[in-house]
Design a protein around this nucleic acid. Sequence first.
DNA 1: ATAGATGCAAACACTTTGCATGGAC
DNA 2: GTCCATGCAAAGTGTTTGCATCTAT
Lengths: 152, 152
Amino acid sequence: MKVDLGTFQERLRQRGLKLTKPRRLVAGKLLSTGGHVAADDLIELLRRDGTPVGRATVYRTLAILRGSGLFDEHDFGSGHKVYERALGRPHHDHLFCVSCGAVIEFREPRIERLQDEVTRRHHFTAMYHSHKIFGYCRRCQSKAPQRVERHA
Amino acid sequence: MKVDLGTFQERLRQRGLKLTKPRRLVAGKLLSTGGHVAADDLIELLRRDGTPVGRATVYRTLAILRGSGLFDEHDFGSGHKVYERALGRPHHDHLFCVSCGAVIEFREPRIERLQDEVTRRHHFTAMYHSHKIFGYCRRCQSKAPQRVERHA
DNA sequence: ATAGATGCAAACACTTTGCATGGAC
DNA sequence: GTCCATGCAAAGTGTTTGCATCTAT
């Protein structure tokens, strides 16, 4: 499934919203950037492009993109939320390097299956989940303290 | 393993810190409350007890308790962090009801094992993880929208 | 005695909101 | 023309920090 501005327009229509220039700019930049981008990054990037968008508008647009299921929002505890394209991409979870901030995606269907089992066991209806593993990535091994895994 | 103020004192000593009255009050209240408590809850509870502790001190004490491995910190996306006793309790992860805010703990060693496999695969050294499933608890089923699981 | 702790208020960082103006439909 | 969107600045929220005072050791 191709995810582009056309898809965005379509989703906006479904909600009776307008496709404005600022919204096109935010969505476009988000799509072209890929990766895990924060609101401030977007504001800065758009400003540098000579097409500044007000911070309120950026936040409001991100809320729409998230609410439409086009983008996922993640909080890696860095004090700000980051966004990544969701539609048209397979689901995955993340490893986060506490040393360099690298975000590594992983897919493990067996974990997903066990999750279903857990929710069933608790008569719980899952809507979404967040599974993050924090530690040291391959390149930051040397900075890791000599300790075993602690859970949180 | 019994976790009490004595353990706290011991951990403080190890770091060259003092066991002061405010710290005893915060740790004591946290231990007696159980559950998942936020900084503001503590401040309010202590104030009501007639033993108020400054907000800065509460936050600073929570940081120590967390850093000493006595308490875990969780963010369920409610805008504030919550704390729960960690030492002397088995590790677990959480289901969070987006309707009533209920926090349900679950243990699933098979998921933990698969996690290890994932980190090994990526040459990643895990320090801790956060696995949360959001949705509707048994009692809030009726409020759940008719939709399949969405991931985030 | 002295290094560390307290508590107030001010500072912070991220995000949201009120409101007058502007633009999509 | 109507209703929604924008953008500024101000407000909000949870948390952290500077600093003079106090206290456990």
